[in-house]
């Protein structure tokens, strides 16, 4: 019997022992007529029985209490973490929105100044900033109502695309989402500062007021962002 056949026999005897063999009659026949297979099966059976007899260790009486204490701790930080990341991303999104607004104004209205009687950004960004000016929980409540929890804590943070689901706005296009992503990437520690010259240049173009507003937002919620401004 070569090694392959031997392995196959082991597989079948082992599966038979576990009640998982497909052709049980053939294995019974093998055990009955082959002394080597019978000995191997007997040894497997003994070792299996001995393994099953190994006693479980005693569980510490306070184990459940310890787990549940940590679980309860988990509930609050889970919200805090979600909120922190949400704010950070929304701040980045707001910053990117300002960039777009600025670029758009330069492209379509230059050299006119941005209207002073109306916010230079609207739609999504305005909504975010408006919520931002309300008590802390308002922004989360707004998000909770608009997005499933899994989306808030999950993959949407990676791209910024899901932000567009907050309140569908035709003006919030692919370019906006791209800039959000790029801006988020720029704030990451492992991305070189000048990886995206366009965004950086756009940030340089912000007015002092815009820059201060962004700096305030980003310094509060994102260390990486504050380095940009």
């Amino acid at each position: 019997m070569n090694e392959r056949d031997m392995n196959r026999m082991h597989d079948e005897l082992s599966a038979f022992l576990d009640g998982e063999a497909e052709n049980t009659d053939a294995i019974k026949d093998l055990i009955a007529r082959d002394a080597g297979a019978a000995k191997l099966y007997a040894e497997m059976s003994v070792a299996s029985a001995q393994l099953k007899s190994l006693a479980a260790p005693d569980v510490h009486p306070a184990f459940t209490t310890r787990v549940m204490a940590q679980v309860r701790d988990e509930r609050a930080p889970k919200l805090d973490r979600s909120r922190r990341w949400t704010f950070a991303r929304l701040s980045m999104a707001a910053a990117a929105g300002l960039c777009i607004a600025y670029i758009a104004s330069e492209m379509f209205y230059a050299p006119q100044a941005l209207p002073t009687t109306k916010a230079p950004y609207d739609g999504q960004v305005a909504q975010v900033l408006e919520l931002r000016n309300q008590p802390d929980h308002a922004l989360l409540t707004g998000l909770d109502g608009a997005m499933p929890e899994a989306a808030i804590t999950g993959e949407w943070l990676e791209s910024g695309y899901a932000l567009t689901e907050l309140a569908p706005d035709d003006a919030l296009d692919q370019k906006y989402a791209d800039v959000v992503s790029t801006f988020a990437a720029l704030t990451s520690d492992d991305v070189a500062f000048d990886d995206d010259g366009d965004v950086y240049a756009a940030m340089e173009q912000l007015t002092d007021d815009q820059r201060r507003a962004l700096q305030s937002l980003l310094a509060e919620y994102s260390e990486g962002g504050s380095q940009l401004l």
Partner: peptide, 30 residues
């Protein structure tokens, strides 16, 4: 298998392997 009494399919889900792999791995382990 021996201490938890799990079937091959459940073990396969836990270790992320097909049942056939579980079968041969248990045999090698034995």
């Amino acid at each position: 298998r021996e201490l938890q009494g799990m079937d091959y399919e459940s073990i396969g889900e836990i270790i992320e392997c097909p049942s056939g792999t579980v079968k041969s791995r248990i045999a090698r382990a034995r």
